[in-house]
Simulated scan of single mutants.
Amino acid sequence: MSSEVKHVQINAIVPLSQRELLKERARQAELTISELINKMISSMVIDVSPGLPAQLKELNSWLGRINSNLNMLAHHANRHRAEADSELIRLHLVKISADVSELVSVASELKKTNRTRRKKAEVPS
């Protein structure tokens, strides 16, 4: 069984400024671009926030429900005009306001938590 390492070529599309930065960092580290990328991949710490996409989907669903409730209230008010139950509409708006406040709080906490978990890659200098 051979322990030979098989190499493959990887092509990536990056902005010109990023390519120039990559060349400059490789030159400063006295490495080829391939060597620099290999070192970056080997030493990079990437935080994959577990469940983040699911949490974002839940927040998006929550926004959808709030939107639906607002549309139903608007439809009721427009359909019944003067006969619309203003007290009922007000109670629902208070509940929607509380939901929005809670949603903002959860989203802010999620953003803060995700920001503190993120770590930068160590680039050889």
Rank of each mutant, 00 (worst) to 15 (best):
L70E: 02
R65Q: 09
S34M: 07
Q9G: 11
N78M: 12
M72N: 10
D85S: 06
S2W: 02
D85C: 05
R25Q: 14
M44G: 02
Q28S: 14
E35A: 13
L93T: 10
N114E: 12
D99M: 15
S108P: 00
K6L: 15
V94R: 13
V8G: 07
A82V: 08
L52E: 10
R117T: 02
A26E: 05
N11H: 08
A77L: 08
L93M: 15
V94F: 04
P50Q: 11
N60W: 02
N67E: 09
V123K: 03
N11C: 04
L59E: 05
I41T: 10
Q9R: 15
P15E: 09
L88I: 01
I66H: 09
A54K: 12
M44P: 00
N67W: 01
S49R: 13
S125P: 06
S2N: 05
I41R: 05
W62A: 03
V106H: 02
E58T: 08
R90S: 15
H76R: 09
M1Q: 13
V123M: 10
L56S: 02
S68Q: 15
E4T: 13
I37R: 03
H76E: 10
L63F: 06
S108M: 12
E109A: 10
V48G: 01
R79W: 05
E20R: 13
E30F: 04
L103F: 09
Q28I: 14
S125I: 06
S43I: 01
E30C: 08
L36N: 03
L31A: 10
L91P: 00
Q9L: 15
I10R: 10
E102I: 07
S101T: 14
E24P: 00
I96T: 06
S105Q: 12
R19G: 11
E102V: 07
R115H: 13
